[in-house]
Design a protein around this nucleic acid. Structure first.
Length: 494
RNA sequence: GGCGCUAUCGUCUAGGGGUUAGGACGGAAGAUUCUCAAUCUUCAAACACGGGUUCGAUUCCCGUUAGCGCUACCA
């Protein structure tokens, strides 16, 4: 727990609760978590809620929920910046006192006007340091007189600021490109730069792993560290995740909320695996060894390091996510799947007709090799678990359009009912094939038809496995009701 | 516009001064036959462009182009 060992890394995930936990944020959190776990360090969670207008408690809950679903547990926090306001003000005052910052009395309107004018004249719309020359004494006097003032950082007017990024290498900015950014707003609330740096220093964060959209912010923060006399952390900027059209991932591209993927039946471990490989390559792949991409938590943690992170943005590939999901569902033991599937049943209002646990597990095992999502157990596999299901009209059309097939299926149901044979895969198959031969009907036609009758679907596991899973009684009942099922499917509803 | 970052199959990527440029997802074809979204086999698919440097550039350098990011008293 407590680590007085200062060589262990301390990282943080610092979301702003102005929205749910989105895919990009989730990956940033994952990389931080993986890094902390790999080195036995500490993963801190900090809520950056200084934007009072846009931050909500609901979003905080949503973010925590998303992280928990993903299985990313934090060691410290969640800290809330709104509860640390005094520290930011103290630091701002300290910076003013040391001459690194100054009071700015410009109104928003004036700033706006100047920006517009600058843009119109083709000049960069940068704050030009109007208030920089106001003496500390005069500043204090005007503030005492009740004039509103923001605190701005006095960026050096020459030279460069650089940092060595663990992903991108040395990144350098001319100081003249940096404007005198605001530290404290005129309402005395901190801005992002002040609060992050204050907190990262105070929380002794050693590695800042965050989105590459922060690269341009970094020199300002470097300047702040220096002005505060604090030691620089290692910066590791992670390239962004894009939509299929290569623009930044947004609602336009469908689900961006992590929780939406849970709702779509994605297994958290699959999502983690997928996300980890978006922008990061494990070392054995880098050394050319052919390796599986299916990497569980322990494998991910063991391999993860900053030097495997790519430099370029990555497109979110839904098809690959689905592939990971099928792989995980297939590999999971039924015991592990059952509670997850039960959630899907609850959501779908499905009450399994059979509550016997062994039967449920066996049936899940029968189905899981062809599941693509947890939802499949409540949708296309529904008929295996309950008697109330809607047949797929396309499947009915394809395999039950022939009246003779339908009649024979009803008759087949009677045969099964009358049979004394044990209701096993081998026996049920033998009976069906003998029956088909007797009627001079291709067994395949009856098998495909029976599948639709029993499952409502054109695609399902082996028919005889389905029969034995369903049991004799339900198999017989459904076969006998073939005509009703066909009528139900072929009658346009509503 | 300015500044910054990036550029290998459709996608995620490996590689690296001389290679049949490798893997995964997706796609196509075939096998199988009891459906396929399963399984097996096979195939197609990439070094953005232009200059250098070099005996030799996909690789190193410069430029162009394109994409993305930042450019707030948001974070």
């Amino acid at each position: 727990m407590s680590s007085s060992n200062s060589s262990l890394p301390r990282v943080r995930f610092a979301p702003s609760p102005t929205g749910y936990l989105h895919v990009g944020g989730a990956r940033t959190a994952l990389f931080n978590w993986l890094f902390a776990r790999h080195y036995g360090g500490t993963f801190v969670l900090r809520i950056e809620d200084t934007d009072l207008e846009r931050s909500t408690a609901t979003m905080v809950e949503g973010i925590l929920h998303g992280l928990r679903w993903l299985g990313l547990d934090w060691d410290e926090g969640p800290y809330h910046q709104t509860q640390r306001m005094d520290m930011y003000r103290e630091n701002a005052a300290k910076l003013v006192a040391s001459g690194h910052a100054y009071y700015c009395f410009c109104s928003r309107e004036e700033l706006e006007r100047r920006r517009a004018a600058a843009t119109a004249q083709g000049r960069p719309p940068r704050y030009e340091g109007l208030c920089r020359n106001i003496s500390r004494e005069e500043g204090a006097r005007r503030r005492a007189a009740g004039e509103a003032a923001a605190v701005r950082f006095a960026v050096p007017t020459s030279g460069t600021t650089f940092f060595d990024d663990a992903v991108f290498g040395r990144v350098e900015f001319a100081n003249t490109e940096l404007e005198d950014f605001v530290l404290l707003r005129s309402d005395s609330g901190p801005t992002y730069h002040l609060s992050v740096v204050t907190d990262d220093v105070d929380m002794r964060i050693t590695h800042i792993i965050r989105g590459a959209d922060h690269i341009s912010n970094t020199p300002k923060q470097v300047l702040l560290y220096q002005a505060l006399g604090a030691r620089l952390p290692v910066f590791a900027h992670v390239p962004l995740i894009l939509g299929p059209d290569k623009t930044r991932l947004s609602k336009r591209h469908g689900a961006t909320s992590v929780i939406a993927y849970r709702d779509e039946g994605i297994v958290p471990e699959a999502f983690r695996n997928f996300l980890a490989l978006l922008g990061w390559t494990p070392p054995e792949a880098a050394s050319g060894e052919a390796a599986t991409e299916i990497l569980g938590d322990q494998e991910l943690i063991r391999r993860f390091d900053l030097d495997g992170i790519s430099h370029s943005n990555a497109v979110f590939d839904r098809a690959k996510l689905d592939w990971f999901n099928t792989e995980y569902i297939r590999a999971y033991p039924a015991e592990k799947l059952l509670p997850l599937i039960q959630e899907e049943w609850n959501k779908a209002g499905l009450e399994p007709a059979h509550s016997d646990r062994d039967w449920l597990l066996a049936t899940i095992n029968l189905l899981k090799p062809r599941a693509r999502s947890l939802k499949d157990f409540a949708t296309s596999f529904r008929a295996l678990f309950t008697d109330t299901f809607q047949p797929d009209p396309a499947a009915v059309e394809k395999f039950l359009h022939d009246e003779r097939v339908r009649q024979l299926l009803v008759e087949l149901g009677e045969r099964y009912a009358a049979s004394e044979d044990s209701f096993t895969e081998a026996e049920t198959e033998k009976l069906l094939r003998d029956f088909a031969a007797e009627k001079e009907m291709k067994a395949g036609a009856l098998i495909n038809g029976a599948r639709v009758v029993l499952t409502g679907q054109g695609v399902a596991p082996s028919l005889f496995a389905v029969m034995t899973a369903l049991g004799k009684e339900r198999t017989v009942a459904r076969l006998k009701a073939t005509q009703e099922l066909a009528a139900r499917a072929l009658t346009p509803e509503i």
